[in-house]
Design a protein around this nucleic acid. Sequence first.
DNA 1: ACTGGGGGCGCC
DNA 2: AAAGGGCGCCCCCAGT
Length: 538
Amino acid sequence: MFYAVAPDGEKGGVLRALSRDGRPAGEPEPVPDLAAAVAARERSSAPRWVWTSTARLYPRLLRAGVRVGRCHDLELAEALLLAFDGRMGESRSVPAALARLRGLPPPEERHEAESEQQSLFGGAVEPPIEEVVAVYAAQAARLEGRLRLLAAAESAGGLIAAEMSHEGLPWRPDVHDELLAGLLGPRPSPGLRPRLLQELADRITAEFGGPVNPDSPQQLVKAFAGAGFPVPSTRAYVLKGVAHPAVPLVLEYKELARLHTAHGWSWLDTWVKGGRFRPEYVVGGVVSGRWASRGGGALQIPKVLRRAVVADPGHALVVADAAQLEPRVLAALAGDAAFAEAAAQGDLYSALAAVFSDTPGGPSARDKAKIAMLSAMYGGGTGEAVQLLTVLKQRFPAAFEYVESAARAGERGEMVRSLLGRTCPPASAEYRDLITTEAGRAAAASRGRFTRNFVVQATAAEWALAFMALLRPRLPEGARLVFFQHDEVIVHTPEREAEAVTRALHTAASEAARLLFGPTPVVFPMEAATVPCYADAK
DNA sequence: ACTGGGGGCGCC
DNA sequence: AAAGGGCGCCCCCAGT
């Protein structure tokens, strides 16, 4: 059973029962209290809810205490379909989709601020139920096979993202403040540097014999040149090779300054409320299908701050990540028998290491395997990695060929797709002419690296979505997903349920693999730790 | 005063 | 032979 939903007014809305292919299976039903109506039908028939945007509509339901099991998110699905057709960037809104269906010019887009404002309580910007139904029917007709699975996974991701934002990641401001004070000194007045940061800045100035603002790369480059140490940039890895006494001070300054500006006290004030960090996730915000986040830098929490992520009393965090997800995905994707055999084991790189040998005083065979693997997936590889890649190519020809052909296709300006059909952006119109020039060849190489990585990263993102979608209904009472970062999840759970959570994680991981790849020897092990604090995992 | 590009670096 | 994927966020600084 499917139900289309259209909010209308402050609290109310309209529902309409649909068949799977979008034909109306009943009359439109105006309801005065949309959340209550959804809750009632969720209890009685657990339908798949068809609505414009989970990100806009579901938070309101969650605030009313209503959770749903499944949905079809029209905007997320429209974006997938547009990308599939090489039309990434065109509006994914329901009115725009409707205009395309009718062969009309795109309607004028509302300003972001305007729609945010009006949709707070499900306001006037939401299209009427007929439009929701019409766009769903058109999408359903196009969503065949794997694309249908992709749309379902993406929609599940939307639900999970909203639920995680609603729940929030447990965050102890007192612990965070102590960490900052220990590294930077006590909280300074606004606009001032913390004491330890100021001391470093003063010592840097002293070393150069004149005022240098270490926040300014330009000033630093000049200062180093003036001291007889010309540097092309002030990147940390560049400075590490420079034998000037200011270098260690600058490196320490950069590290602490970043902590202060990106995750310091003002971050804490802004993003942590009531002991919870509530980031806004942007499902499908990355072209590869990875999530992005808006505000708060949720996907870049520095490791040092994980100390502040502490479970509530009587609760635990189950921190789990998929070990070496991307190479395993490549193994399954490419159907490389030899590679799949290696990926049938717990430590993939150790298994691959058999192909390489240790260099005394240099990288281990396992390190070499890792370098070769990452080079194959990212398109890198200078110096020694070239030989490592050659070994990889000989031993695992199918896997090598898979990423190689994706790179060639990208260079030719073609689009590439993930396993389920997520599609990379097309090359620009000027691309084909450009690639005869020097700059164009660089652009082609760059696009090749992008598409090479896309097929793996995007399929890995699909595995992660499937994993979470399968995990969610398996979580025991009281356990909640509270964080997701590409291949890692955190579940906040009553202590007594931690073991059940761990079992659910392992089950969901292998089910996700079967859902995507069917029978495959490749295993997708989860490394799960039950801990009181995020920093204690790993 | 505001904007946008670039440098730099956090995470995967 | 060489070739380093994806983000978000902060600051600086030049242009307007």
